[in-house]
Write a protein that binds this DNA or RNA. Structure first.
Lengths: 343, 343
DNA sequence: TCAATTAATGCAACCGATTACATAAAATTT
DNA sequence: AAATTTTATGTAATCGGTTGCATTAATTGA
């Protein structure tokens, strides 16, 4: 076979002395085509090394069989497992994936959304950046009727389908666990409260404090960007507090690890002096010392659920506008970083 | 604008009373079109909310403006930064990315290659799975003249363009460093020696031992699959050795962290009893205790270089078959896990 | 045996952009 | 002013499948 020469259904048709329409139908397993002809078509396709031209097909059908995924970063355990879940479902269903990440920038997020829109994805799965406030960049999708599913970082007030965990509950049980371990002054380290996930976790945190009769001061809330530098700074700030906190609930395992390192460097013992609870159950939590208590939630399931809902909608099996909010299970995993009492 | 109604260049042409050809040219900044007309075209395109139909374009031009990326996993720092590098270059050049991962399975790798081939990527960037032995699944690309670039895990004997680091040298300096720190019995923990990266690192390791007059026994080489379980087993095996090793060179930071954890659990002090050097400079290395000495190499640069070479080739700026092997810089980062002597 | 169904296949118009070639209009040269 | 060149635009074929409708062949029924 010479390079550059592509085999088309016309070539197959000519060789077999039948019409291209028949070849097309045969390739699609259209029941109108006899088994005999179909077999001949497939055999000839193999022989000639035929491959479908998806561009011709998509052009004609005016659908791309592509799903866009918009995430903030690719660098966490959580996100990669969500992607794995999405990928599993979409490949099974014969869809391609176009993945874009915003590096936590609302501007880049909007640019990516625009790009995916121009690429005509059939549907979009997205998790918002830190500083995204307006959802305007998703409007074109809505106007064209392209279905959207948000996961994890979402805007819940809008009429979107969202796949999330119960962040408030997670925040509550994480905090409650610290309280049960005897912590009296608990600090919460988190990111922009404009994002639902952080706002909800914070809410759970506050509720738990309140329900257990612990008071709260503004200084017990540290908001930053979840970078390494921010983790170090948060730890230093806590070291200066009087009295020092005896418990920390941090919204992310990486920052937890950084904080713990800094605290330890400054002579504090974990969990005796300060107990720590993280969030996400990244691999790192089990490798640092002491091992990190954290909230586990199944990224892969979230990805699968988001993708499955979108695809069912696309195939007309179900309507995405009916199921508005899907809550995925989550749990507290208790390890040494918070254990001050015998189990 | 009603959903479902797509604006085409014909619509623009009709409104402006010019031909679709002119619109097409105007949109492409073809110099044959007067500035005035071009402006009218762009304005009308904006007004109508026109978006290019890439499928029509690709069909006509018989090129997809898509580059396939084939990697073993998405879960490491290294791979995500390579992807970031690739993405940067390809988006700048207006290419899309189709990313597939093989989960370290040669079978899945072949399936992904087949899929990307059928999707007609214009070029392919790949890093091989553990157990890939044959490169047959890349043949169709070669036959059709689709350019290939391999990075990191490559097959060097073939006539492919590869982007790599000097793994032998890295293995050498890592080992030499341990020797300089006074290690007499060094164990190397790595993965399948069929893969160039591991084979070369092992070679460097052996050469360093030899050059410094240290003898080597088979038991000093532990080959596994770089999983958590494998890391624990490797550590346990070393604990049973008589005499126990006083240095370890591990081919990956995650496994290093796991090994260190197990060794510490068994009462060993690092680096006093055993010094450890990892590979990759993952974030984890700086969070565990003691911080991990490791080899750093810039994934983002590798990605950029691989992508840039591929794209230059596609654009006819350069020929990929000329530059056969590109070696990216790498360096040893010394941290506490190996430091037995004052710097 | 012949009409009425049903099954299998073909015809031809599309999807939306690109581009070689032709043509018209404007600018320049002689 | 006519001829020539340059600039701007139009015509129509093409890329490779898909699909509504028409047609033919095979099967069934009367």
């Amino acid at each position: 076979m010479k390079p550059g020469k592509e085999v088309t259904i016309y070539d197959i048709a000519k060789k077999l002395n039948i019409s291209p329409a028949t070849v097309s139908r045969g390739l699609q397993d259209n029941p109108a085509i006899s088994k005999k002809t179909r077999k001949r078509i497939f055999d000839m396709a193999d022989e000639l090394g035929y491959r479908t031209n998806h561009y011709a097909r998509n052009l004609r059908q005016s659908q791309t069989n592509t799903i866009g995924v918009l995430v903030h970063e690719l660098n966490s355990n959580f996100i990669t497992s969500v992607l794995a879940g999405i990928e599993k479902v979409t490949t099974e269903a014969g869809y391609d994936l176009l993945i874009a990440h915003s590096s936590e920038s609302a501007v880049k997020e909007a640019a990516n959304a625009r790009n995916l829109f121009h690429k005509r994805v059939d549907g979009l799965i997205a998790s918002l950046a830190f500083d995204t406030t307006s959802l305007d960049h998703f409007k074109p999708f809505k106007e064209k009727g392209v279905p959207l599913v948000f996961f994890d970082r979402v805007e819940q007030d809008a009429d979107n389908t969202v796949v999330i965990i119960d962040n408030a509950k997670c925040g509550y049980i994480a905090t409650q666990h610290l309280i049960e371990q005897g912590c009296k002054k608990i600090v919460h380290v988190t990111a922009s409260l404009k994002r639902n996930v952080y706002a909800q976790r914070y809410k759970g945190f506050r509720d738990a404090l309140h329900d257990h009769g612990l008071k709260f001061e503004e200084s017990q809330l540290i908001v930053n960007d979840l970078s390494e530098k921010a983790g170090v700074e948060a730890a230093l700030r806590m070291l200066k507090m009087k009295p020092m906190p005896d418990g920390i609930f941090i919204t992310n395992d990486f920052v937890s690890a950084v904080c713990m390192r800094t605290l330890k460097e400054n002579g504090l013992r974990i969990p005796q002096d300060i107990a720590v609870v993280g969030f996400n159950n990244d691999a790192i939590g089990n490798l640092i010392e002491p091992a990190l208590t954290t909230i586990n939630y199944p990224g892969i399931d979230m990805g699968e659920i988001a993708a499955r809902n979108l695809i069912n909608h696309l195939k007309g099996i179900s309507d995405i506008h009916q199921t508005n909010t899907i809550i995925v299970r989550s749990e507290l995993i208790i390890r040494k970083s918070s254990l001050r009492k015998p189990v």
